[in-house]
Amino acid sequence: MYPEDRKYSKEHEWAKIEGKEAIIGITYYAQKELGDVVYVDLPEVGREIKQGEVIATLESVKTASEVYSPLSGKITRVNEKLKEKPELINEDPYNNGWIAILEFSDSKEYDNLLSSEDYKKLIEG
């Protein structure tokens, strides 16, 4: 439920570092709260984004929710599969349900995110 190979934001996003890039997604808890995701509004590739800015909008049956970027950087790829299969966010939030990849600009931002353990504490109290 809280993979240890990545870090977490208080807003329930995760970031996983691979070289110069970070993969961004939402947590198991977040997708569960959202319910069935039926549409994903993805960002434009090439866009510069700051930490805390809206990187995507997820629409569940019930409501639209914004996803905030846990890191600053330049978006290099988005998960095109979500256009046809938004349910990947529910089915596999930590792998096939990733949202975007960005070339991050400040590794300190990553360091300041929550560890798996701290995020678990945030959720489970």
Partner: peptide, 20 residues
Amino acid sequence: SKFIEFAGWYMPLEYEGVIK
């Protein structure tokens, strides 16, 4: 059940998921 407040009531919103 996941709950929601609706018209002054604490109501079941969904169990297995709205679509299902």
